[in-house]
């Protein structure tokens, strides 16, 4: 039988959405409340790992194929560096310069609001995607190997 009992499967299918939403919340409010890209990314990955544990590896792979996860991983990391390089271009030669805050939001009083802090929420989103994809891939790869003695 694939995965665990019907009780676990039912509960997991309810909870996975909540976990996923909570991960997105942690990432988006990373610059305002405790948490951020890494913590939120771990929670996002957690929702997929829950699927993997409850329904088995094949079901989790259908939801997030390995090729897609590895592409997301690379693209998010690249966008992170690209944003830092944009700071370099727009910020008079300063790498990681928060150019969005300084150029576009400087006159707009926004402290404490969701759209504030310039480039930092964007960095959080990229980190979140990268961490979620990488941790999911790590778990998937670890679940692919069995000890020789068990077979």
């Amino acid at each position: 039988m694939k995965g665990m009992t019907i009780i676990v499967k039912t509960i997991a299918s309810w909870i996975k959405v909540l976990v996923f939403l909570f991960g997105i919340y942690i990432i988006l409010f990373g610059h305002l409340t405790p948490g951020g890209g890494f913590a939120g990314g771990v929670i996002l990955a957690g929702s997929y790992i829950l699927l993997l544990l409850a329904f088995g590896k094949e079901y989790a792979e259908e939801n997030l194929p390995i090729s897609l996860a590895s592409k997301l991983d690379c693209i998010a990391a690249f966008l992170f560096i690209a944003l830092a390089l944009c700071g370099f271009i727009y910020g008079a030669g300063f790498f990681f310069y928060n150019f969005i805050q300084q150029k576009f939001l400087v006159e707009y009083e926004s402290a404490g609001e969701l759209v504030s802090a310039g480039a930092i929420p964007l960095y959080n989103i990229f980190i979140g995607i990268k961490v979620a994809a990488s941790l999911f891939l790590v778990t998937l790869v670890l679940s692919a190997f069995r000890l020789e003695s068990q077979e």
Binding site: C74, I75, A77, F78, I81, L85, F88, F95
Partner: peptide
């Protein structure tokens, strides 16, 4: 030459090449 390029250049290409 701006110093971060020594780090950013290989890092960015390291993430682009697997694509």
């Amino acid at each position: 030459i701006p110093l971060p390029l020594f780090i950013a250049l290989p890092l960015a290409s390291a993430f682009l090449l697997p694509l």
